[in-house]
């Protein structure tokens, strides 16, 4: 199967283990969410995959071939990062042109169409664009480039709600027409949740969890009711977080709800964001 595969990739910055033996695969034709708190190692991982950084240990493969300094394989990956890599004088049009030259395929008509939709003037220099439009011109480049793997690091940074919605639509339309691997690394989890097929959570440089979105959403639930009854119920269970307001208590449990729940307790489903926060809290992860 075609995929980007990391085997025990590590990256140290001095004493800090930014990535600690990360093994995972981004398979062909799926949309992934790469989630993690600030400093979890998401950007470092994407940098190591694309050869912008050399891993301290481990190996990255693209479609079975070593990716490191391998032009043929790296050409298959388009990586939208947060850094500005183009010369200050370069216009958006020029970025489109050179991306096409480097990758060997770029749908210019589609890109210009998107510029119009997002209200971006492609004759402008990239260095003169606002934060939001800097994200937008990179997104358009990512959508229009002909590459089977698209890695997007904080793709909606600085985008207003209307533009974010537009981007999600365009992304799905693009994906429906030309299925490929898309990795979304984002902090706006709730918005992106329904776009994702699989979710990978990085925590302190390690893969904490890799599941389909559906599975993950069903791996936790909330239970609320009278404090004493909730306490009795959660005893011995994997409690991700708990909160009391007066005599009423709500706890987040990792696992599936039992068949015969006490009738006085109410259970609820977790949304991805709440589950994520609970899992990556101070002690949350150690319980898994």
């Amino acid at each position: 199967m075609n995929a980007i595969t990391c085997t025990q990739v590590s990256k140290n910055f001095g004493d800090v283990k930014a990535l600690d033996q990360v093994s995972l695969s981004f398979e062909e034709g799926k949309i992934y969410g790469l989630l993690g708190r600030n400093g979890a190692g998401k950007t470092t991982l994407l940098n190591c995959i694309t050869g912008r950084m050399f891993p301290t240990g481990g190996e990255v493969y693209v479609d079975g071939e070593t990716a490191l300094e391998n032009e043929k394989e790296l050409k298959k990956i388009f990586y939208m990062g947060q850094q500005e890599l183009y010369p200050e004088e370069m216009t958006v049009n020029k970025v489109f042109y050179w991306t096409g030259q480097f990758y060997g395929g770029f749908d210019l008509e589609y890109a210009q169409n998107l510029c119009q939709k997002f209200g971006l003037d492609p004759k402008k220099k990239t260095s003169k664009l606002s934060t939001g439009y800097r994200s937008i011109y990179k997104l358009i480049t990512a959508l229009a480039v002909d590459a089977p793997y698209i890695l997007l690091d904080e793709p909606v940074l600085g985008l207003d709600a209307g533009h974010r919605e537009m981007f999600y639509r365009e992304l799905l339309e693009n994906y429906a027409e030309k299925p490929r691997t898309i990795v979304l690394s984002t902090h706006l989890i709730e918005e992106a949740a329904s776009l994702l097929e699989e979710v990978i959570i990085l925590h302190n440089g390690r893969v904490m969890c890799h599941k389909t979105c559906e599975e993950l959403l069903h791996s936790g639930y909330t239970v609320s009711g009278k404090q004493s009854e909730v306490d009795a119920f959660i005893a011995g269970k994997k409690v991700l977080s708990q909160q009391s307001i007066g005599g009423l208590k709500t706890a987040v449990i990792y696992g599936k709800p039992e068949e015969d729940m006490p009738q006085t307790l109410e259970t609820g489903r977790m949304d991805l964001q709440k589950l994520f926060v609970a899992m990556t809290e101070e002690n949350g992860g150690e319980l898994l």
Binding site: I31, R169, L172, E173, Y175, A176, P179, S194, L195, E197
Partner: peptide, 11 residues
């Protein structure tokens, strides 16, 4: 459905 509801096509 996927585009208008903004849901992953696999779902």
């Amino acid at each position: 459905l996927s585009v208008s509801l903004q849901i992953n096509p696999a779902t």
